[in-house]
Amino acid sequence: MPRPFRIWYPGATYHIYARGNRRGAIFTDDRDYLQYLKILESVRSNHPFTLHSYCILNNHLHLLVETATSPIQTIIKEMHSRYAVYFNRRFDQDGHVFQGRYGSKVIESIDYFLGVSRYIHRNPLEANMVKDLSEYPWSSYSSYIHNTKNSHVDPARTYSYFKDPVHEQYRIFAESQTSEEIIWVPR
């Protein structure tokens, strides 16, 4: 049975996730994380998209991506193909780096958009990798709560759903345990 086609239209927003083959590490040190982000920027220069949030862990990753003129299939295929070539060359390996096809979920509501952003940013905490979310260096979370520039992400859409001070309201939202504590501005 053939794989289903991915839904795409200009402006489509997705939760993208991918895991290392056999749940193995796909990021071993800072060099690998930096290379992935470098590839992301290179691909974005050819296929514009907005990255709303990200978290890259040693054996998987999450991206919150809004497309512009290129289908998500084109964007992720190029990013992951280029990263796999880099990774295999670096470690003198052959074969798959990522486990199967990347996952994607179309986001069509504010609740889902914010829920995915929170889920992505909470990943290191839920995996018991850190006690404080802002400690994890390979996530966009720190730039969100400190209202600092991260050249990879554009927090404007996410911030637009919160009252001032938006970075503090987002921190409370992301660090809360339940959705009942949500303090965003309904639209």
Score class of each variant (00 low, 15 high):
Asn21Trp: 08
Arg23Leu: 09
Gly24Gln: 14
Ala25Ile: 12
Ala25Asp: 11
Ile26Cys: 12
Ile26Asp: 04
Ile26Ser: 10
Ile26Gln: 07
Asp30Asn: 08
Arg31Asn: 07
Gln35Ile: 03
Tyr36Cys: 03
Tyr36Ile: 09
Lys38His: 13
Lys38Ser: 12
Lys38Pro: 01
Lys38Val: 04
Ile39Glu: 04
Leu40Gln: 02
Glu41Arg: 13
Ser42Leu: 11
Arg44Trp: 04
Ser45Gln: 04
Ser45Met: 02
His47Cys: 11
His47Asn: 13
Phe49Cys: 09
Leu51Tyr: 03
His52Phe: 00
Ser53Tyr: 01
Ile56Met: 14
Leu57Ala: 04
Asn58Cys: 09
Asn58Phe: 08
Asn59Phe: 07
Asn59Gln: 08
His60Gly: 00
His62Gly: 05
Leu63Ala: 10
Leu63Asn: 10
Leu64Trp: 04
Val65Pro: 10
Val65Asp: 08
Glu66Ser: 15
Thr67Asp: 08
Ala68Met: 07
Ser70Gly: 10
Ser70Thr: 08
Ser70Lys: 07
Ser70Pro: 07
Pro71Arg: 10
Pro71Ile: 01
Pro71Asn: 12
Thr74Val: 11
Ile75Gln: 13
Ile76Asp: 14
Lys77Glu: 12
Met79Thr: 03
Met79Glu: 13
Met79Gln: 06
His80Glu: 14
His80Cys: 00
Ser81Trp: 12
Tyr83Val: 00
Tyr83Pro: 04
Val85Ile: 15
Val85Ala: 05
Tyr86Val: 09
Tyr86Ile: 10
Phe87Cys: 04
Asn88Thr: 08
Arg89Ile: 08
Arg89Ser: 05
Arg89Gln: 10
Arg89His: 12
Arg89Lys: 11
Arg90Asp: 03
Phe91Leu: 13
Phe91Tyr: 15
Asp94Arg: 14
Gly95Thr: 10
His96Gln: 09
His96Asn: 04
Phe98Val: 02
Arg101Ala: 01
Arg101Asp: 05
Tyr102Phe: 15
Lys105Met: 03
Lys105Ala: 09
Val106Ile: 12
Ile107Leu: 06
Ser109Gln: 09
Ser109Thr: 15
Ile110Gln: 15
Ile110Gly: 12
Phe113Val: 01
Phe113Met: 09
Leu114Gly: 11
Val116Arg: 07
Ser117Ala: 15
Arg118Ser: 06
Arg118Phe: 01
Tyr119Gly: 01
Tyr119Glu: 07
Ile120Met: 05
Arg122Gln: 15
Asn123Lys: 00
Asn123Thr: 09
Glu126Trp: 02
Ala127Trp: 02
Ala127Ser: 12
Asn128Gly: 07
Val130Pro: 13
Val130Trp: 03
Val130Lys: 06
Lys131Phe: 01
Lys131Val: 02
Asp132Cys: 05
Leu133Phe: 05
Ser134Cys: 08
Ser134Thr: 13
Ser134His: 07
Pro137Trp: 06
Ser140Met: 03
Tyr141Cys: 00
Tyr141Ser: 01
Ser142Asp: 07
Ser143Thr: 01
Ser143Gln: 06
Tyr144Gly: 11
Ile145Tyr: 06
Ile145Ala: 13
His146Ala: 04
Thr148Trp: 01
Thr148His: 05
Asn150Asp: 15
His152Ala: 05
Val153Leu: 02
Val153Ile: 15
Asp154Lys: 11
Asp154Gln: 13
Asp154His: 08
Ala156Asn: 11
Ala156Trp: 01
Arg157Phe: 12
Ser160Phe: 02
Lys163Met: 09
